[in-house]
Simulated assay, not measured.
Amino acid sequence: MRFLKTVGAALVAAALVAAVPVPAAAASGDIAPGAWEPAPQEEFELPAGARCDFAVRSESIVDEVRKLTVSTYPDGSPERELYQGALIGRLTNLETGASTITDASGSARIEYGTDGSMTWYVTGPVLFGFRENGGTLPKGLYIIDGEYVVQFSPTGIKTLTMRHGTVHDLCADLA
């Protein structure tokens, strides 16, 4: 999914949200082309320095994430999708073995721009990764919780606008 590329490659392309084939009849307007479907989050490993000062691995313990494509562009690519469901994971420092359990079970509406940008409207906790000089937070892996918006530029730069909530640095937990 784009979501984890954002994390992995980061949650940078964040967004590992994979595109879903859409029937031609549903490829225009705000017609929901289908039902909720599973949207499993990919596990990932990042080398030292990519997000934390040490290598990390993220793996799912519970993954009940599902998505609904709400609207598509004429070519069938998603314009707007909804994501929800339980996502509990384990984040491990590969150098020391220290680990922490994460709850990234928030809900999101993701709007995709035709230029490769995307905007996430989120309620609840989600795991986001920021690379060095990659946005409004320092390099790291974070659980962001509350009500907020994350905008991704076409180059993967993330801008967090917090309505209310918290930002928790997972790299600090594992150091």
Rank of each mutant, 00 (worst) to 15 (best):
V12K: 05
S99M: 09
L91F: 00
A98V: 12
A175D: 14
Q41T: 15
S77W: 03
G97V: 13
T102I: 12
S117Q: 08
P23T: 13
T92C: 12
L68W: 01
S99H: 06
S107P: 04
T155M: 12
V7S: 11
P21R: 08
A27P: 05
H164L: 12
F128L: 14
L4A: 10
G135P: 01
K158I: 14
E43H: 09
A19E: 09
P138K: 04
H164V: 09
A18H: 04
V20P: 06
S107M: 14
S107D: 14
N133R: 14
G140R: 00
L16Y: 01
I101R: 09
V56A: 06
L170Q: 05
A14H: 03
T123D: 10
C171F: 03
D103K: 04
A13F: 00
L174R: 05
G8V: 11
V12C: 09
V62W: 01
A104V: 05
G135D: 01
A50C: 09
P78Q: 10
L91Y: 01
P23G: 12
R131N: 09
I144C: 03
P78F: 05
G165E: 04
S58M: 15
F128V: 11
G89F: 01
N133T: 13
D103G: 04
P23L: 13
N133K: 14
A25S: 15
E132D: 15
G146P: 06
G134M: 02
S60F: 05
A24W: 08
G97W: 05
V7T: 11
N93D: 12
Y142M: 09
I143H: 03
D75P: 03
A39G: 10
G134Q: 06
A26M: 11
V22F: 06
E81C: 07
A35F: 04
V167P: 00
E147D: 15
L170G: 00
M162Q: 02
R80K: 14
D145T: 10
A55R: 06
D145C: 05
L94M: 14
R90T: 08
Y73F: 15
Y148S: 03
L4Y: 02
T159V: 15
S71M: 08
Q41V: 15
T159S: 13
I61S: 06
R90W: 00
T123G: 11
S107H: 09
K158H: 13
P138E: 14
F3I: 13
A9T: 13
Y83P: 03
R109W: 08
S107C: 14
T136D: 13
S77K: 05
L170R: 02
V17F: 04
A24N: 12
A18I: 12
P33F: 04
G113R: 08
G49E: 11
V12G: 08
I110D: 02
L82F: 03
A19Q: 09
A25K: 08
M162R: 00
V126H: 01
F54V: 11
D173C: 06
V122N: 04
V167G: 01
Y142V: 06
W120F: 10
T136Y: 03
W36V: 11
I144T: 01
Q84R: 13
Y73L: 13
L160T: 04
Q84Y: 01
G97S: 12
W120D: 00
A55W: 00
P154C: 11
G134D: 01
I31P: 02
